[in-house]
Design a protein around this nucleic acid. Structure first.
Lengths: 160, 160
DNA sequence: CTTAATTACGACCTAAGCGGTCGGATATTC
DNA sequence: GAATATCCGACCGCTTAGGTCGTAATTAAG
């Protein structure tokens, strides 16, 4: 279905929240959970994962909580999703082509891998601070094309 | 995890196979299944779905089978995935924002919806005939940028 | 007209993963 | 030492993906 998990959603929401409140030195999982109606214990585990991945700094004890480990502009959504959901690959045949090799040539994998890279590139290009919608994120229209997009298309269809 | 299902994989593989064998007027599900080691009955159901969606034409009976309903260049991977897996949305909170509304503002959804559109645009730009890897699908490097990509990035990260 | 190939369709099953909870341990501040 | 927190592992219910089975309807070939 190509959808990302709720955990990743929650993680992104939490990081965005942290990015929007730089005045607070530490925000508890419960605070964020209450603010958005997210199950507190679940969010706690997510934030712990993000901490282990080095995206957050944690501080236990009273008045403790989490804080961004880096500038929100330096944290990509790709990293967040990776930290929470693990490495993703469009192809259900996992990367190694190990399983598909025996069943002849899964000829579709190479082009699909390029699609995978494209999507990853898009995700890498979007940082947490980009999620803070300052309404129109105009400009830089051509930059996306530089993200290592392999052009697969010989016939560009206009997207709705 | 942002991966597409095996069913979609199988469907794409089958369509590519059909596109590569235009000489055959009809290919049975079993033929394709045997060629790639795909469970025959499962593939059959997938091809039936694609037929219902108008991407394939079917012919029952002996020497029957499936054929592309259109030129492979006119069938986008987006359509295939849509036909098999149904509409996909990056956001786990389904499109209507119905469920998220009550739990305050799920501020992350708008930017994520744009990511969704971007990915959809990429998928729409890739046709079945594009999957036939004529090695380097060069050129058109900038075209992707025209696909209605909303530029979210202010800081482009180099993709691997 | 019988047989074999093939699509069409629905019921069903199983394993895995997501979303979530619970309980307890550790750390830190007041 | 009591109140907040992070930490961490075990557990659980539910959905869904992936796949099977059986059966009916269609069509071509002998």
């Amino acid at each position: 279905m190509l959808k990302l998990t709720k955990k990743a959603d929650y993680g992104l929401i939490a990081l965005k929240y942290l990015a929007e409140h730089p005045e607070k030195t530490a925000v508890s999982a419960k605070d964020v959970a209450d603010a958005y109606g997210i199950p507190a214990q679940l969010l706690a585990k997510i934030l712990q994962q993000l901490t282990k991945s080095g995206l957050l700094k944690s501080h236990a004890g009273m008045n403790g909580g989490y804080a961004l480990a880096r500038d929100p502009g330096k944290i990509s959504t790709f990293e967040v999703i990776l930290a929470i959901d693990g490495p993703f690959f469009i192809t259900s045949c996992t990367k190694g082509a190990k399983d598909c090799e025996l069943s002849h040539n899964c000829t579709i994998k190479e082009p699909l891998a390029r699609v995978n890279d494209t999507i990853a590139g898009v995700l890498k290009s979007i940082s947490i601070s980009d999620l803070t919608d300052h309404e129109s994120a105009e400009g830089h229209a051509g930059d996306i094309a530089k993200i290592g997009l392999v052009s697969l298309s010989t016939h560009v269809v206009e997207a709705k």
